[in-house]
Amino acid sequence: MIGRIAAAFALALLLSACASQIDAGVSAGAEVPGFWWGLWHGFIFPWAWIGSLFSPDIAVYAVPNTGGWYDFGFFVGITVLGGGSFFGSKKRGSG
């Protein structure tokens, strides 16, 4: 069990090393989406994704954005507000 967790953690760490964001995608200013917009965009992700399949004017992720804080808000919006933690917390029946 511990070996599988360690392997999953090592794989996640290896894959995250490949992640990068171009400098043109990160900006600063009053109009640039930050944490709160990331939170909102994460929350509406399922509907925005469906809309993006039918319209090229709909995007699920704002670019440019403030970088890490936008990403954190987006993550929280998807996992907590979007139901990600709800579906992972269901208890399995014993027996």
Rank of each mutant, 00 (worst) to 15 (best):
F74W: 15
A48R: 11
R4Y: 07
K91Y: 02
T79Q: 07
L53P: 02
G3M: 06
V76L: 10
W47D: 07
G83M: 03
W69Q: 11
F87E: 03
V60P: 06
S52I: 05
G25F: 11
V32N: 11
G68I: 13
G68L: 09
S16R: 15
S55N: 09
S85M: 15
G67E: 13
I58L: 05
F86M: 00
H41I: 04
Q21K: 05
G84I: 01
D71E: 09
Y70P: 06
I2S: 13
L53E: 08
I22R: 14
R4A: 12
A17T: 13
I58M: 04
T79Y: 09
E31P: 06
R92T: 12
S55E: 00
A48E: 05
F54T: 08
Y70E: 05
P46S: 03
F54D: 03
F54M: 09
V76R: 00
W37E: 11
D71Q: 00
W47Y: 09
D71K: 01
V60I: 14
I5E: 02
I5R: 01
T79S: 03
I50G: 03
K91D: 14
G67L: 03
G84F: 07
A12M: 00
L14S: 14
T66G: 06
V76F: 00
D57P: 04
G38E: 14
F45C: 00
S27V: 09
L15R: 05
K91R: 14
D57K: 15
S52R: 13
A8C: 04
Y61M: 01
A8R: 08
G93T: 05
R92Q: 09
F45R: 08
F74G: 06
F45S: 13
F72A: 15
A24H: 14
M1P: 02
L13S: 05
F35L: 13
F72N: 02
I44V: 13
A24R: 11
W47V: 15
F74C: 04
L11I: 00
G88K: 07
G3V: 13
A7V: 03
S85R: 03
W47C: 15
F9A: 06
A17D: 11
A6N: 09
A48I: 02
S16D: 14
F9K: 06
A19K: 04
S94R: 07
F9V: 09
I50Q: 00
W36E: 12
G93N: 02
W37F: 14
